[in-house]
Nucleic acid binder design. Sequence first.
DNA 1: GTTACGACCTGCGAGC
DNA 2: TGCTCGCAGGTCGTAA
Length: 288
Amino acid sequence: MPELPEVEVVRRGLDKWVTGRTIETTKVSHSRATRNHVAGPKDFVKRLNGRTITSVNRRGKFMWLNLDDDHALVTHLGMSGQVLVQPLDAEPEKHLRIRCTFTDGGRAMHFVDQRTFGGMAIEELVATDHGQYLPEPVQHIARDPLDPHFDPESFIGGIRKKRTQVKRAILDQTLISGIGNIYADESLWRSKLHWAMPTERLTRAQATELLRHATEVMTEALAQGGTSFDALYVNVNGESGYFSRELNAYGREDEPCDRCGSLMVREAFANRSSFRCPKCQRTPRTLS
DNA sequence: GTTACGACCTGCGAGC
DNA sequence: TGCTCGCAGGTCGTAA
């Protein structure tokens, strides 16, 4: 499942392969992949062809390719999206949704998405703080911990003002971006916090530690090319990352905790799963 | 204004 | 063997 480290791996690959190149043809094979482009797939193709990609950018899990006309090709991988750079004669992938070729006759860009939660859209770039230009749909997304302008104080103050569970808070992309279910569980395990801990009870020290661990785990995952459980997450060359071998919490139900040896448990959380150590991450008193 | 929750979607594995 | 059902989960719209 692509979270911040996985998206950053893809961004770096795309930056290397497509920046400076001009799109010649675009084919949309599944209209749902361009559902966020309100003018429809025909307009999407028309506006993309002939445009040169000037840079590849990211905030949290959103990625966008700046074009030479003050617009950007905004891309979200959703749960199963991949952006691959393939030879022109490569067999089309089973779930190929969008394909772009370039005027230089080199490798093509494929957007592949099994579950179609991801997609692409062309959006106008709007000026924001620090002289940065963001696509309109990305403006409400908070900076992520790997962003040089990320403000730790804003996160620490913000999370302690909320009235919700700590895991819900760190999954809230308007508070801090880039964290998904996997890195949320890993950050909470490292911080010895239960996912249901009320945010108003977090001490300043706990919030600071949580942020430190979230930053740490995503930095480590990035260094290893991201986390992968199957062929659903790969870099632009179709290769998987190695961080799944380092996970301490996510997907480890009934396995011994790497810290205390207690058997890890899996619990229902907001229509998905949460993994924790019952001893290291004790249930908050108000919930027990 | 803030929080919670369901819908969207497809492939896979378990159970019958 | 073949069918049904539950599960995986990021984002958005809507309800409370």
